Amino acid sequence: MKKGILLVNLGSPDTPNPKDVKRYLGEFLMDERVIDVPLWARNLLVKGIILNTRPKASAKAYQKIWWDEGSPLIVLSERLQEKVQNNVDYPVALAMRYGSMTIKKGLQELVDKGCTEIKTVPLYPQFAMATTETIDVKVDELVAEYFPDIKITRTPAFYHRKDYISVLSKSIAEKLDGIDYEHILFSYHGVPERHIRKSDVTNGNCKMDGRCCFKKGSEQHEFCYRHQCEITTVNVAKALGLKNGTYSTTFQSRLGFDPWLKPYTDRTIERMGKAGTKKMAIVTPAFVSDCLETLEEIAMEGEEIFHEVGGKEFTVIPCLNDREDFAQVLTNIIEEWASKEKALTV
């Protein structure tokens, strides 16, 4: 069986104009694992309200961060793909869960190259229903309908890998070298609290009070986004030698009125600024590629909030993007899979 690799990221509008943004938002928000309400309610919310009000504002936000080469997320993902391809002997394709760079096109590219065994690598360090799971489900649907003869191997969350923590920690240390800061905020993409409950394989052990996040050996941790975010912060803080009280975990990008994971990033920035914090650094470990949520929501809106309440210095740490050492982490994941598969066939 010829092996192939499919890297999958979130996606992006084709252009930052309202028409393309509306099309992209429609596909993204109508995903039942992103807005997990009954179809009639999702149609009412997305098609009846959001798509009639949000595209113009979102388009303006995209225009602020758009590069000459295109969407930052797409450009950075393509650069990462190229570096991983240079490291391995297997064909490496790139796809997006939403937008025109579809997963179907990515799978077809690998099949056209003769691949019959494909490892999917979602570019999300932490598992979430609205990220990794929706990719896995979409791949399964496409394979069943269009590619019944290929074998798919999934990649589990890699938030706890030593090489990933080492690279993430190194990227933070490099950016903060010589910078005086008082507090580091680890800001992760938010999800509704109900997503955590739905992903709880123990059927009710999670009480959403944070205590179970740090218990060792819980079977629910394999699919608990909150746990994986908290542990990412803990492991990086340990690697960097951060003192208690000098760092914290928050969640950004909430939508609607239901409870989302707390504390909220924007409110934490505002609260700490009002409390006298003058120098803040912020890192976004749920994103491997800089995108709207990091370049506009954090680096622009977050900094504006901080300055408005008296903050002075706001340092944004870039995502891992196409760093050579991050490409090596993905290479390690691929090679470990290939070696294991080879060993099983000897």
Rank of each mutant, 00 (worst) to 15 (best):
K151N: 02
C319M: 09
I298R: 02
G190K: 03
Q126A: 02
I196G: 04
R197T: 15
D325N: 14
M300T: 04
V143G: 03
L80G: 07
D290P: 13
Y90Q: 10
C224H: 00
R97S: 03
V201K: 15
L25I: 07
G4C: 00
N86I: 00
E174T: 15
I184D: 03
M300P: 05
R79N: 12
K151I: 01
I152S: 04
I298L: 05
P192G: 11
D112K: 03
N86R: 13
L29K: 07
E222S: 15
R211T: 14
E230M: 08
R97I: 07
A59G: 05
E222R: 14
A130Q: 08
Q126E: 00
H221K: 12
K56Q: 13
L261Q: 06
K56S: 13
A61H: 09
K278S: 09
V288W: 05
P125D: 06
K262G: 14
L185M: 10
S166M: 13
Y90E: 04
C212P: 00
P192T: 11
P122M: 00
I5G: 01
A281R: 11
E109L: 07
S218N: 15
I150D: 00
P13Y: 06
S169D: 10
P148C: 09
V121K: 00
V143H: 01
M101P: 02
A93Y: 00
L94M: 08
Y98S: 02
L107R: 02
K56N: 14
D36L: 01
L168F: 13
K105C: 06
T131E: 04
G106K: 02
A61M: 14
T345K: 14
M129Y: 10
K104A: 06
A95L: 08
R197M: 15
I231M: 12
A57Q: 14
A130T: 09
D325S: 07
L10T: 10
I305A: 10
G204M: 08
T134F: 02
G273W: 11
G210D: 02
E341I: 12
H307G: 07
T246W: 00
I50R: 03
T294I: 05
E182H: 06
H227V: 10
S58W: 03
K238T: 12
I184Y: 11
R33T: 04
A299I: 03
I179H: 15
L6P: 08
F326Y: 15
K22E: 14
D112G: 09
D68R: 12
K162C: 12
F287D: 07
R23W: 11
S77V: 06
E117M: 02
T153V: 09
R42F: 04
A59T: 06
Q85L: 08
L44C: 14
G48V: 01
E182K: 12
D163E: 14
M101R: 14
V88D: 02
L44M: 15
V329I: 00
K262A: 13
E324W: 10
K151H: 08
R194K: 14
P148V: 04
K238Q: 05
T315H: 12
D258P: 01
I196K: 13
I317H: 01
G217F: 13
V75D: 03
T284G: 07
R23H: 10
F158I: 02
K113G: 08
G310T: 05
S71K: 08
L80H: 09
K215N: 13
V46S: 05
R97L: 05
E324L: 15
N9V: 01
Y164F: 14
E222P: 05
D140Y: 08
I334Y: 00
D200L: 02
G210H: 01
K119I: 09
T15C: 02
G11N: 05
